[in-house]
Design a binder for these strands. Structure first.
Length: 575
DNA sequence: GCCGTTTTCGGCCCGACTGTTTTCAGTCG
């Protein structure tokens, strides 16, 4: 198999780690490798293919002559001699020490030179024996911290679904908003950017000088441990989850600059600061400056305005071309939750849902939807009590009867039909032909080869009754990777024959993800943003799907359920 | 190692907190 972009990025990150612990004297060389890794991870093109086509790698940002040569070496030989040389020079396990918060390259070198520490086990032993605190630059407290961090390592590397920290984020926000002297409270960081997972929470507060908000923060009942605590910053770890929360306090006049800074992403900030420096400006969390003169900082708009740019919504701030688009006046008009006129994927008690058809209809109408497709499972999915053709026929009658009794809202007759391992569908065509909408999905045989899995999905799409492919990659965040699929072929095929791909809004799915959604619309693929609700409450999950779509530069026109039922029906029938 | 409307050298985002120091290095975000 050809080497993937992710693998190349990982190689450069490893090289950067090794250089750090080795004591590379030039920190910018290390940063250059990390920059390259980041660029490569965000690339929408396959490097191995670019090498094969002899394309100019140096045209890529942050990739120069040396790195281009190294990429070619990796693609053509599967290895990087520079990396192997450094691996030989550095004990295996030394770079691992970088994972311990509080340990950077300088301290790791000192540990190695003076105590002969070469891995985590050595480090833990030395700390327990009290040998660390005898080193210059280390003390008893550092030794204790290191010991605790080693124990917490596994927990620390965990990321959280954004959706699962929402409740805590909101609780902290309203708690802080009630404190004396506090003006505004915003949860910034990746949370504000609607990233699918967050590593921690960054909370920004504007408050009167000398307010005690930081003290109040660390006194919150959910705080288990205080990592650091000053007047303008504090970091804590929460009980039970181990979620880290960082608080920053700034004066009102710096709110915009601070909000921008702490919203990130880091890559977006660095790119904007680079632009600032090129124009003789300086941006920090207190404002935007020319020399000592402060040009603004009360609002985010004021920051972007200095560059002749409109405000960029947080979902786009990943340095994936949004700054260039903003400069050119070509930012997308992103889809909003309000653009969605209905929901095209949900379940009822007929299979594995917890609410009846009537209850789901009422709930969807209460959300302001114009329509809701009932798409229960087909019988192959026995764990979900999937329906056979007869059961589907009975449901069709029930939905027709419901629609006959109600005006101003429409239930669509649908199914989430299983795609069998050879790409056939789990219900006969004559059953599918009676439905308004057919959603097809893979729920089994995740381990097929890339070739077979791709063929399977393409064949299912070729059935002219199929309108939407649900959760196209099958990934479950943090639990199951996507099945092996030639996603480029799937996108091209979907665009060619007019099958829509789903953005599934379940927080652990978000499938397609932001980057694939963007790749899809760039190829002209239509999307459906669906809740896949298994209860009335889950109909509200649609906002997570809409947010991922926004992160993928998706506009309303790209999404079939931004259309009224009249227009959607025309589109579905045109398949 | 990258990069260029200060272009082939000399920069590279920038400020806060901790711990150990007695004025600051290291680390982090």
């Amino acid at each position: 198999m050809a080497v993937t972009n992710g693998e190349i990025a990982a190689i450069f990150d490893q090289l950067a780690d090794l250089l750090e612990v080795e004591g590379e004297e030039n920190p910018f060389r290390i940063r250059a490798y990390r920059n390259a890794a980041r660029v490569i991870r965000g690339l929408d093109r396959n490097l191995a293919q670019m090498v094969a086509k002899r394309e100019d790698l140096e045209a890529l940002p942050r990739i120069g002559h040396e790195l281009a040569a190294k990429i070619r070496e990796i693609v053509e030989t599967g290895r990087l001699r520079t990396l192997e040389r450094h691996r030989r020079a550095v004990p295996r396990g030394l770079a691992e020490l970088l994972r311990v918060p509080g340990l950077g390259p300088k301290r790791i070198q000192r540990l190695r030179e003076q105590l002969g520490i070469e891995n985590l086990r050595d480090l833990e032993k030395a700390a327990r024996e009290g040998r660390l605190q005898k080193l210059s630059g280390f003390g008893a407290k550092t030794e204790q911290n290191i010991l605790r961090e080693i124990e917490a390592l596994d927990r620390r590397t965990r990321r959280f679904l954004r959706a699962e920290v929402e409740e805590m984020a909101e609780a902290l926000r309203s708690y802080l908003a009630k404190q004396a002297g506090v003006d505004e409270v915003v949860v910034a960081g990746s949370y504000r950017r609607w990233k699918e997972t967050v590593g921690d929470l960054d909370i920004l507060v504007t408050a009167a000088p000398n307010s005690a908000v930081s003290d109040a923060f660390i006194a919150h009942e959910a705080v288990e441990r205080v990592l650091s605590h000053g007047d303008t910053r504090a970091s804590v770890v929460l009980r039970h989850t181990g979620l880290q929360v960082d608080l920053r306090v700034v004066p009102q006049q710096s709110f915009g600059a601070a909000l921008h800074y702490f919203t990130g992403s880091r890559a977006h900030n660095i790119a904007l600061r680079r632009m600032a420096r090129e124009q003789g400006l300086k941006i920090n969390e207190y404002g935007i400056f020319r020399g000592d003169r402060r040009l603004g900082g009360e609002t985010e708009e004021a920051i972007y305005r200095q560059f002749g740019m409109p405000w960029i919504t947080p979902e786009l701030r990943e340095d994936r071309g949004e700054l260039q688009a903003a400069l050119a006046g070509e930012l997308p008009e992103l889809i909003t939750l309000e653009d969605l006129k209905g929901d095209l994927h949900c379940h009822t008690t007929a299979t594995d849902g917890s609410a009846s058809l009537d209850e789901m209809a009422d709930a969807a109408r209460a959300l302001g939807h114009q329509y809701l497709a009932i798409t229960d499972h087909s019988h192959h999915l026995t764990v979900a009590h999937g329906q056979n053709a007869e059961a589907v026929a009975r449901q069709i009658e029930a939905i027709d009867a419901w629609n006959a009794r109600h005006r101003g809202f429409r239930l669509l007759k649908g199914v989430e039909v299983d795609i069998l391992d050879d790409g056939r569908l789990d219900l006969p065509d004559q059953t599918l032909a009676r439905l308004d909408i057919v959603v097809a999905a893979i729920h089994s045989e995740f381990g097929l080869s890339r070739t077979k899995q791709t063929q399977r999905l393409l064949r299912a799409m070729d059935n002219p009754k199929v309108h939407i492919i649900a959760h196209p990659t099958g990934r479950l965040i943090g639990r199951r990777p996507a099945y092996d699929l030639d996603i480029d072929r799937v996108l091209a095929h979907a665009a060619g024959i007019g099958v829509a791909l789903e953005i599934n809004s379940q927080p652990e799915r978000l499938d397609l993800n932001d980057e694939l959604a963007r790749a899809a619309i760039e190829q002209g693929v239509l999307l459906a943003i669906s809740s896949d609700a298994h209860s009335t409450a889950q109909l509200g999950l649609l906002r997570h799907g809409a947010a991922q779509a926004r992160r993928g530069w998706v506009e309303a026109a790209n999404v079939i359920n931004s259309r009224s039922w009249t227009r959607l029906r025309k589109l579905l029938r045109s398949r």
